[in-house]
Design a binder for these strands. Structure first.
Length: 654
RNA sequence: GCCACCGUAGCUCAGUUGGCAGAGCGGCUGACUUGUAAUCAGCAGGUCGGGAGUCCAAUUCUCCCCGGUGGCUCCA
């Protein structure tokens, strides 16, 4: 057979006798590399032990390549399962995949519960197995034989039944006494797994369904070398320091009182300062985009929620109550309120689009297990808005919104990593979606065009549209690498229709028409957004957002009066200023102001009093002495006005 | 919601054969008057998440609640 061998830029070709293994063939080419753990044959990853019988191209897979790491981790999962089986005889491994996010692997195992303290023991057993350097052997068997081999493990039996067609063969991987039903490929031997660690233990259900058997999920990760493993854990610790729950407490932005309201955030003065800045900024963007601000109540009779469809589609997430023998519901969404405002008069096609915005606080019952800090809560304030548009206006309106999303995230907040998702109707299951195919298609096309016209890469999530229309969602990562949905742009043909609110406008031929509603939020939820930016900035907010923008500290009592004067001037200029004029040492005061991540600290001592000046220190430890208060104010007001991401006063030349 | 782990002062955490509850930070008071990342001393602060049980005795053991954290199909 004819084999081409490619590494790097070079390709060589040779006639090879059929039936030789990949590692033998590669050796024939004179290639030796101890980091090679597998190879691609015609682009498909395979074990080094695979025997080739046909022509093709071979390429080595090195342990530090993306494919190599994947194989490494997959073998890590197998070694984990082997270790568990050696320690817990009754354990029954189920599935053990590689995960990208977090980078690593897990194995779901039916076994007695283990805690974090058990992990070192399992890890040690894994090291022992690695030390044995067991050869990893791939074997193929027919379905009957596989079922026989795994009859002790009902989960594997189920997997075999499901994945191996009758009469066909599939593979298992064997290392020492351990054997697993698996497609592979894997490391040549267990000794290649050098840098790994078990990270956590959790719980999952067979096939992710809570009605199925609970399984113990053990997480681990592996890297090509110790150095990369260490770096990964350093990065994780850094992420923990950025956790908004920790920073929120330290910086005094919000509190929770779970005994009175689990997952109901309470915002303190500093948190509200930040929140108000976010709100004011979004209000200006909304005005620019033609949204008129409105305000609607927090509760309505359920009659409204019946009409909007929430009572039938969203009931289990609603806070319901009875008042004077009438049923009421806290609002889970603002849209019906905005519809009432639309309905107050009649509209011509010339009036559209009609757009309303509201910082509307909504209440949603979330299952207790899914709430998380500010990122998933039960009372949240949306920067909500609804546009009532004609079908021919959808593309333009959505385009305006996408531009705002980009401006807000990329430019103003410096968040580059956005994930756009287009959720569409599942064509094979149209029953759960309302409206005509034609309208769906045209609307979905309009969303696509708005994205593609701006060269925005996006994922299509088929079947994940809301029942009332397709949508674009934007996700952002948190400190631990989890994605959270923030912005959303949703099309809705459902609430305006005859069965619901029967919205109208009059077209150019004097016929009644139904507008399409666009539900949109840029921050999504202010609460979640605050959590995300707290982690993004690691609590060191740009000046315009900082709850405290400047702190004034004095060196001794003799400079107190002058310091107070500086504080007064700053606060008259609408700067959020704090001061520490106590008898603590200057060292301590500086330390504190750094801990509070305050952008600028003004230091007042005898020299400043004498020179009618100030000294400014920023949170990056830079300092400018003896400058005028005016020049500082001017620069700071510029930073606030421009929403500058960086603090630069102290780096400017005199 | 389900499962695992966890719950001690405002915050971070100690506290083992079950025997009167601790530290640091923060707060308050006083002394000190300090020039660039923790001055010193004293004081206050806890139903050991809540309830029930076992025991002479429970923060500690058992059970039930309430919360928090992580996870709940990235398939073999």
């Amino acid at each position: 057979m004819r084999i081409a061998f490619r590494y790097g830029e070079k390709t060589r070709e040779k006639e090879i006798e059929g039936g030789k293994s990949i590692s033998e063939i590669i050796k024939d080419f004179g290639y030796v590399d101890k980091d090679m753990i597998a190879a691609k044959f015609n682009g498909k990853p395979m074990d080094l032990s695979t025997k080739l019988t046909e022509d093709g191209t071979l390429e080595p897979i090195k342990i530090d390549s993306p494919e190599g790491v994947h194989i490494l981790r997959h073998s890590g999962a197998h070694i984990l399962a082997q270790a568990v089986l050696e320690l817990y005889r009754d354990a029954k491994p189920t599935i053990g995949p590689v995960t990208d996010d977090p980078p690593g692997f897990y194995y779901d195992i039916k076994m007695e519960n283990v805690s974090l303290e058990d992990l070192p023991k399992i890890e040690e057993k894994m090291r022992e197995i690695v030390g044995r350097n067991l050869e990893v052997i791939r074997r193929e068997y027919g379905k009957e034989k596989l079922l026989e081999m795994f009859k002790w493990n009902p989960f594997k039996v189920e997997l075999i039944q499901e994945n191996v067609p009758d009469g066909s063969k599939s593979s298992v991987y064997e290392q020492g006494d351990f054997i697993d039903f698996c497609l592979g490929p894997h490391l040549p031997s267990t000794g290649y797994l050098k840098a790994f660690r078990l990270t956590s233990v959790s719980n999952a259900y067979w096939r992710g369904n809570e009605n199925n058997e609970p399984l113990v999920r053990i997480y681990g990760t592996a890297f090509p070398n110790e150095k990369m493993l260490k770096e990964y854990f350093t990065m994780l610790e850094e992420a923990k320091r950025r956790d908004h729950r920790k920073l929120g407490t330290e910086l005094d932005l919000f509190i929770f009182r779970p005994e009175y309201g689990p997952a109901f955030p309470i915002f303190t003065p500093k948190g509200v300062a930040l929140r108000n800045e976010l709100i004011n900024y979004m209000k200006s963007l909304n005005r620019r985009a033609g949204y008129e601000e409105v305000w609607t109540p927090h509760a309505y009779k359920t009659a409204l929620w019946d009409k909007s469809g929430h009572m039938s589609h969203y009931r289990e997430n609603m806070f319901l109550m009875k008042i004077e023998d009438e049923d009421y519901g806290m609002k889970p969404m603002n849209c019906p309120g905005h519809i009432l405002i639309y309905q107050r008069k009649s509209w011509s096609y010339r009036d559209l689009p009609v757009k309303f915005s509201e910082f509307g606080t909504v209440y949603r019952y979330e299952k207790s297990g899914v709430t998380s800090g500010l990122l998933r809560v039960r009372s949240l304030t949306q920067d909500d808005g609804h546009a009532f548009v004609r079908l021919d206006q959808v593309e333009q309106e959505v385009g305006i919104l996408i531009d705002i999303v980009k401006e807000v995230y990329n430019r103003t907040f410096g968040i580059k990593e956005l994930r756009f998702k287009l959720s569409t109707r599942d064509e094979n299951n149209t029953s759960k979606f309302t409206g005509s195919t034609e309208v769906w298609n045209r609307a979905t096309e309009a969303l696509k065009k708005s994205l593609e016209g701006r060269n925005i890469p996006y994922e299509i999530k088929e079947g994940e549209a809301a029942f009332y229309g397709p949508k674009i969602d934007v996700d952002v990562r948190d400190a631990i690498g989890r994605y959270w949905q923030l912005s959303t742009i949703q099309l809705d043909f459902f609430m305006p229709d005859r069965d619901h609110f029967d919205l109208r406008y009059t077209d150019e031929k004097d016929n009644p028409q139904q507008p399409i509603m666009i539900h949109r939020a840029i921050y999504g939820s202010l609460d979640r957004f605050m959590g995300v930016i707290t982690e993004h900035f690691a609590g060191a907010f740009p000046v315009w957002l900082s709850p405290i923008q400047v702190k004034v500290i004095n060196v001794t009592e003799s400079s107190e009066e002058y310091a107070r004067k500086v504080v007064d001037i700053l606060s008259m200029r609408n700067i959020r200023v704090d001061s520490d004029l106590s008898s603590e040492t200057i060292n301590k005061k500086i330390r504190n102001t750094h801990g509070e991540k305050i952008p600028y600290t003004i230091i007042i001592g005898e020299k400043e009093v004498a020179g009618k000046s100030i000294s400014v220190r920023d949170r990056k430890n830079r300092q400018k002495n003896g400058v005028s208060l005016d020049s500082f104010l001017e620069e700071m007001e510029r930073e606030i006005e421009e929403k500058a991401l960086d603090i630069t006063f102290c780096e400017k030349q005199e």
